[in-house]
Design a protein around this nucleic acid. Structure first.
Lengths: 225, 225
DNA sequence: ACCAAATTGTGAAATATCGCGCAATATGGT
DNA sequence: ACCATATTGCGCGATATTTCACAATTTGGT
């Protein structure tokens, strides 16, 4: 275990490992090796060991990792053992779809409130959650202990939404608007940009087919079984 | 211009640049410098120049880039000047929300069909688009010239969906199921994993606050104005 | 015609990320 | 007790990506 800074690539993979461990636990295995994990996705076993080693020596040489123990460790490391209260800004199609997205619950995220500026939407309920006036954002955040904001508004309003979020003292934000946002220091912003993902796929299709061989993932030298 | 392989990080950025150029074009500027572009997002101007240089010498020294010309180049490079026909697999909440997502149209993607296995959903219409039986996937793909598949089914069915897609000869797939999929050679898979993104945010929140200084983005040394 | 300012394209240096290879160590068989 | 096998943790070299820094070029002012 070292106390270097952890890259986001690593934390993303931790999430994937945990997901996999859950499957393995259901299947009933007691231990699992990094090699076995690596084979499930297309990853290198050394990378898995290295990712885990940032946080401790969880494995046993000659044996592998104890599934239950590693599961508990990863759950704690990722903070999934505590509730994360979420406020979603934007009660449009995306915002309301997210409000009852199962994945939130699975990651121990509770959608505490939805916010919108449209008087026609304010006051309505989406599932269990009431749509509140965005003007009351800061007050609701305090009252409901909201720590995470999700921005699901059109691109032109996203920066303003982010600034309101930051003023309310929130430190973790997930953004779905297709726009580059500027954050203040200490605020963690994670963006999911569907447009960019689509256009990147489009690029692939637009390329002459000879180049398709480039996308063959020549990695994964760990898979000779 | 060199003919190296282009990283996906680069193509993602091209998409962002294009979006920015569109704004600039609306604002009426004729030319733009890499520095001006860099300042809009938190990027390094050299990176922008280098990204563009993979595809040609679009700039003029001492002047910058002609907005209209660069816009046209990027549109072509990303393949946004031709229609991309899409089939969405899974007519659940996500699939139907995607079916009339505005971003698809903007990127010149046309949702040609939705597919599902549930007899209750088959035959219904979502906006303009009819929900078809997944069993007829390959036939519909041929008939409607579908080139891109979007997987919006629960995780446990995603791998099967992908295999069906590949058998139908489709080479570009976007996956929303939170699971690591295995693709055949030559098939481009782009995954958007909300669960992983959430858990990565959760990690940030779970960390002791001393570490928040790590996330200050010490990059962007190009911003001294 | 010349010079200062602006700005590109790009080689080279700096960082970041990944994968190999192996010593260290645990297990199970004999 | 010993040896063969399995498998981790990790140093180190390999790749990938980003950033620097500067010659080359264009523009506009004098």
């Amino acid at each position: 275990m070292k106390s270097e800074k952890i890259s986001e690539l690593t934390t993303n993979r931790l999430s994937v490992y945990l997901r996999c461990l859950n499957e393995i636990a259901v299947a009933g295995a007691k231990t699992v090796s990094s090699k076995a994990l690596a084979d499930r996705f297309h990853l290198n076993s050394a990378q898995i060991r290295k990712d885990l080693a940032y946080f401790g020596e969880f494995g046993v040489r000659g044996v592998g990792y104890y599934v239950e123990a590693l599961r508990n460790h990863l759950t704690k490391i990722l903070g999934l053992d505590r509730e994360n209260r979420v406020g979603i800004i934007g009660a449009g199609r995306l915002g309301t779809a997210l409000a009852d997205y199962y994945g939130f619950r699975k990651a121990n995220f509770t959608v505490a409130a939805l916010f919108d500026a449209d008087p026609k939407k304010i006051g309505k309920k989406v599932g269990e959650t009431e749509v509140k006036d965005i003007k009351n954002f800061a007050a609701v955040v305090k009252q409901d202990n909201i720590e995470v904001a999700v921005i699901a508004v059109p691109a032109e309003f996203a920066q303003a939404a982010l600034e309101r979020v930051e003023k309310a003292g929130i430190k973790a934000v997930m953004n779905f608007a297709p726009v580059a946002l500027k954050t203040s220091n200490g605020v963690k912003l994670k963006s999911i940009d569907l447009t960019t993902s689509l256009e990147s796929l489009s690029y692939f299709l637009a390329q002459p087919p000879k180049q398709s061989s480039r996308n063959v993932k020549p990695k994964v030298k760990d898979r000779r079984e």
